[in-house]
Design a protein around this nucleic acid. Structure first.
Lengths: 116, 116
DNA sequence: AGAGAATAATACGCGGGCGTAACGATCCCG
DNA sequence: CGGGATCGTTACGCCCGCGTATTATTCTCT
């Protein structure tokens, strides 16, 4: 059975989550950075710069810069593809896994708190 | 009954939504701007700069700037409070209402598409 | 009426993401 | 083996949001 969520519930969920994130003042990822992060952690590897750029519909420098930033935060790592050294493989990290899982838990918890 | 959402479902929902937003390349609100917008549209008026700043835990210039930006986008309007002219009342707009409702519908639709 | 508090806006310099254009490294294939 | 294609990165100038400090306006209270 599908997840049932009314429009009003969806908006309240978004509101709660936005407030959470604003108040916690965490690293504060861009929407693009989040899209990249979740793609890396939810979809099957391998992930390349070019592949991510195509999937998101953005240019490659956008991906490179986002990886730079998230790399500094320890959320993601880069490795050269040895079979084709032009490619770069984006890899998950322990810290990134924790970050993503914590994010999912937060959303699920907020959803559970929604009024019926 | 509460909305049931597993962590994996929550993450997929976030992923889908992030991809939607990145690909549509819409106005692209900041997390803070979204928090302000949803507060204005979901909570009971009146809303002031000071009140929003306190609610989000940010400084007043953050609110002023966000209102400037969203004002240009037509999502929100400002009006002087006539009973205390120091205050500014933030008001909803037709365009903002449509934007918010469309956002809620999108989230609800994506939630409904989630695998069981 | 006047001093002080409160409100929102503005000024300033900083950091970071953006798009376009260029670059170096690596591969492919005739 | 060498020219062209492919991949990721870097350079450049631009814009925008940020935090702090300051300003202008309005209210409050004696």
């Amino acid at each position: 059975m599908a997840v049932e969520l009314r429009t009003s519930q969806a908006l309240k969920l978004l509101h709660d989550l936005a407030l959470d994130q604003v108040r916690d003042s965490e690293p504060d990822l861009t929407q693009r950075q989040l899209a990249i992060l979740l793609t890396v952690y939810l979809e099957v590897p391998p992930h390349t710069v070019r592949g991510l750029a195509a999937k998101l519909g953005v240019t490659k420098p956008v991906i490179t810069r986002a990886l730079d930033t998230m790399g500094k935060l320890g959320l993601v790592t880069r490795r050269r593809d040895e079979t084709d050294r032009r490619n770069v493989i984006i890899q998950r990290t322990v810290r990134g896994s924790l970050f993503v899982e914590r994010l999912g838990d937060l959303v699920a918890a907020r959803a559970r708190e929604l009024p019926v």
